[in-house]
Write a protein that binds this DNA or RNA. Structure first.
Lengths: 231, 231
DNA sequence: ATGATGCTTCGAAAACGATCGAAGTATCAA
DNA sequence: TTGATACTTCGATCGTTTTCGAAGCATCAT
């Protein structure tokens, strides 16, 4: 198959409303069952099944069989990046007119997960704070945690050494936000930081969306530990 | 229109073979006429016209009328980024089997333009050399040219101050390569460097493609001026 | 076993989009 | 003005894709 045909095939897969909904639903990095995805997209199970098969065959999704359930997730961070890049174009221009956005949309802008790390105002704020305090020093492809950052993460209970050990995944990388139009921290460290926030009850997922809210406890810890000030 | 519908609309536009060809053809940042794009995609002028209208209305392309010609170009770097991210998924896995690639493909891997800057082995090599020599120090969102880099560019005849002056475009940003799987230098500096190479005859575009080759003269200058060693 | 659940395959109906011939508009060159 | 070029609009055709009902498989609970 020609390279261009494959390009079109991939893009076309993302270009169906039903499939687009499913891909968006998987953007938080979780693995969902076919039924959940069907309901999320508002289509029947049969339809969803055929869509999921096609996307899996094309290498966009990966499946894991568990009993009578089939868990689907994005095949790789590269897929998530493609979805983000399309989202960025699809997002209403912030600069244009401050058009009316629903409450759910507002929650998404405030904070959400992006594949496996934090995005939105929350993600950008944390990233900014880390850089300003000199805890992160990011190069072009792979970033570095400074000595002070190393100590900080260790104090918080995040083992950066262990993350560095498992190669094959870039430690730090920037990921451009569709709402903030600025980059936030992704990569293995971004993922670790995100799950750390979840595990400690600093953030909580809003029912049925990928929006997250910061708990009062989380606000305090983020401020005290990482110097994050959420406007 | 719901946000998700717009997502699907954008992706679907890129998901037609004809339109995909045109978008790829515009990836070098040039503006092409409708006829050129029609020929490139192997479709008639009427068909191309309707495609171009749709993509323009969706905000993917921008047109400029000049006499009886209509020049079409990508509407923004964000569009180019989306195309790149799809390409990355569509590219044959380098890791898998070193499958037979045609000579044209080899030329593209060696060096090409990506929207308005250099990519491929060439682009990555230059970027690496600049970073290793301490001429570039890239932060998360906007990079910085170090003092030594400033001097270097000035010596070469590239006015970084002037580039910094025109705001609205990020000076440095990484752009991930589909062939090298590593980032190369994009942004205003990347664009300036690219046109500088063209203007001085260091690189030349291969007829009808966006592949570029380095001239013997260019090899020498790139090595002497920027410390680039092309394997 | 028996029935329920999760998911896939099959088949047919319906909707959609791509395509191009033909005709129309705008610009250029005499 | 006349003719040529660049491009768009219209209209009809044709192929693809989506969709879901119905039936089939696999797994689980009892």
């Amino acid at each position: 198959m020609s390279n261009n045909a494959r390009f079109a095939e991939i893009a076309a897969l993302a270009g169906d409303p039903g499939r687009a909904s499913m891909l968006n639903g998987l953007m938080d990095g979780r693995a969902l069952t076919a039924s959940e995805l069907a309901q999320l997209a508002g289509i029947t199970a049969q339809t969803a099944s055929s869509h999921l098969t096609r996307m899996t065959e094309a290498g966009l999704l990966a499946v894991e069989k568990q009993g009578r359930h089939r868990y689907h997730r994005l095949a790789s961070p590269a897929v998530a990046q493609m979805i983000e890049s399309i989202m960025r174009l699809a997002a209403p221009e912030v600069t244009a007119k401050p058009l009316r956005t629903g409450p759910r949309d507002a929650a998404l802008r405030a904070g959400r997960t992006c594949y496996d790390h934090l995005a939105g105002h929350l993600g950008v704020s944390i990233t900014d704070a880390l850089i300003n305090a000199g805890h992160l020093d990011l190069g072009l492809d792979a970033g570095e945690v400074t000595d002070s950052g190393l100590a900080l993460f260790a104090r918080a209970g995040i083992d950066v050494e262990a993350l560095t050990a498992k190669r094959g995944r870039i430690l730090c990388r920037p990921c451009l936000d569709w709402s903030e139009r600025r980059p936030h921290l992704a990569g293995a460290i971004g993922a670790a930081l995100c799950s750390h926030c979840f595990n400690n009850g600093w953030i909580r997922r809003l029912e049925g969306t990928r929006a997250v809210s910061v708990t009062p406890n989380g606000q305090r810890h983020l401020r005290e530990t990482f110097g994050v000030s959420l406007s």
